[in-house]
Simulated assay, not measured.
Amino acid sequence: MDNKNKFHDNLIVSSAPHIVSDTDTTRVMATVIVALLPALCVGIYVFGIRVLALAIACMLSSSFFEWGYNRLLKRPQTVGDLSAALTGLLIAMNVPSTLPIWMGVVGSFVAIVIVKQLYGGIGRNFVNPAITGRIVLFISFASEMSTWPVPKMADTDALTGPTPLGHLAAKEFEKLPSNLDMFLGFIGGSVGEVSAIALIIGGLFLVWKKIISPVIPCAFIGTVFVLTLIYYSANPASGHNAFSMALFHILAGGVMLGAIFMATDYVTTPKLTSGQIIFGIGCGLITVVIRLWASYPEGVSFSILLMNICTPLINRVTFKRYIKGGAK
C-alpha cells in the first residue's frame, strides 16, 4: 500500500504533447529571432540605425511587461523563454521605422499584458499578440502608423512616401517599384516587409530546423498568387501583366512576413495539416479581398487575426474528420 501511494505521489500530470526532445520553448524562440535577423539587417541598411533602436526598445519593454506581470501576480517567471522578446521584435518589424518609441512600447504592453498574460500566459492566448498589438497601434495612431519612410538610397528629396500597395491603391501605376526591387528590399514600408529574399532565407532556415512547417506559408502565399493571377487575367483592361501583378502581390506588403513568421504561431493556428491548409487559404483569401476591394490597401494583419479566431472551429472540424477516418 505504501509503495502504491508513493507511486501516485510521483505521477506528473500535464497537458499534451508528451514528446521527449531537447527542443524547448527558449530554443524555439531563439531560433525564430535568429531567422528574423537577415530582414532586420536589411531594414537597418535601408532605413538607418533607428530601426535597431526601435527593435531593442520593443524587445526590452515586452520582456519587462512579462517580468512585471508575473512578479505582480506572484506567478512563475517566463521572461527567460524569450517569447516576449520575440513578440517585441515582431512588433518592431510590423511598424514604420519612424514610429515614436513610446508608441512601440504601447504596442508591446497591449501584446504582452492584454493579449497574452490576461488570458493565462504563453500557450493560452487565442490570437497572435504581435498582430493584435500592431492593429491596436494602427487604430490608435493611424497617422504615425501610415507614414512610411523612403529608403536611404532612394533618388528623392522626400523623407516619407507611400508603400508599393499605397501606390497601387492610389492608381499611381507609374510609381510602382519593380518586382526585383521588392524582392531585394529597396522599397519603403515597415521594417519587415521591405526584403522578400531576407524573409525567405529566414523561413527556409526555420523549415530546415523543423521549427515551422511549410504548409501554412505555402497555402497563404500560394492563395494570394493564384487569386490575384485570376483577377488580373479576368481584367485585361487594367493594362497589367497578370503574372507580374500576382508576383507583385506576394512580394509587396506583409505577405512574406505574415505567412512565414506570424501565421505559423504554434498557439493560434490549427494542429493538423488539413486544418493548416484551410487556415493558410483563409488568410490568403481575406488578404486579397481587402487589397482588391476594401479601402485599406493591406489586409495581412486582419486576415491572420480573423483566422486566429476561427482556429478552434477549424481544429474541431478537422479533428472529427481525422478520428472518423481512423475509425474506418
Results as ranks from 00 to 15, higher is better:
264 T>I: 08
201 I>S: 05
237 A>N: 13
254 G>T: 05
271 K>R: 15
228 T>P: 02
199 L>E: 10
238 S>L: 15
206 L>V: 03
222 G>P: 05
247 L>R: 03
256 M>P: 02
230 I>L: 11
278 I>C: 13
201 I>M: 13
211 I>W: 07
221 I>P: 13
235 N>A: 12
279 F>I: 04
255 V>R: 10
263 A>Q: 04
199 L>I: 07
269 T>L: 00
253 G>S: 05
233 S>M: 04
277 I>H: 06
219 A>N: 05
205 F>Y: 15
275 G>L: 12
250 I>F: 15
230 I>Y: 03
267 V>I: 03
209 K>F: 11
234 A>M: 15
261 F>D: 04
226 V>R: 03
255 V>F: 03
270 P>N: 11
254 G>A: 13
207 V>D: 03
226 V>S: 05
220 F>Q: 01
219 A>T: 04
211 I>L: 01
239 G>L: 13
203 G>Y: 07
222 G>S: 07
211 I>E: 05
235 N>C: 13
209 K>E: 09
258 G>T: 10
272 L>H: 15
253 G>T: 03
211 I>Q: 14
242 A>M: 01
211 I>S: 03
206 L>N: 06
213 S>M: 06
243 F>T: 14
225 F>S: 02
263 A>I: 06
262 M>K: 08
206 L>A: 00
261 F>S: 02
221 I>F: 06
267 V>A: 10
279 F>P: 07
243 F>Q: 11
217 P>R: 09
244 S>T: 14
259 A>Y: 02
258 G>V: 02
243 F>D: 10
254 G>F: 10
256 M>A: 13
222 G>D: 07
244 S>L: 12
252 A>E: 00
223 T>K: 12
223 T>F: 04
202 G>N: 07
242 A>S: 07
263 A>D: 00
259 A>K: 00
238 S>E: 13
257 L>G: 10
216 I>G: 09
244 S>R: 11
273 T>A: 13
237 A>V: 11
267 V>E: 07
210 K>M: 11
205 F>V: 11
217 P>Y: 08
263 A>M: 07
238 S>A: 14
269 T>G: 06
229 L>G: 07
233 S>G: 09
260 I>G: 10
213 S>L: 12
212 I>F: 10
271 K>E: 15
258 G>H: 05
260 I>F: 07
266 Y>V: 14
259 A>F: 04
238 S>R: 15
203 G>E: 13
227 L>V: 09
215 V>Q: 10
223 T>G: 04
251 L>I: 05
270 P>L: 08
276 Q>A: 10
249 H>D: 06
233 S>H: 13
252 A>Q: 06
272 L>G: 02
250 I>E: 08
200 I>T: 09
206 L>Y: 02
216 I>D: 07
211 I>V: 14
268 T>Q: 05
244 S>M: 15
241 N>F: 04
273 T>E: 11
230 I>M: 04
253 G>V: 02
267 V>L: 04
240 H>S: 08
221 I>E: 12
253 G>C: 04
242 A>Q: 08
258 G>K: 01
235 N>K: 15
265 D>R: 09
248 F>W: 02
203 G>C: 12
245 M>G: 01
219 A>E: 02
207 V>E: 12
234 A>Y: 10
254 G>L: 07
232 Y>M: 01
276 Q>W: 14
213 S>H: 12
277 I>R: 05
199 L>S: 08
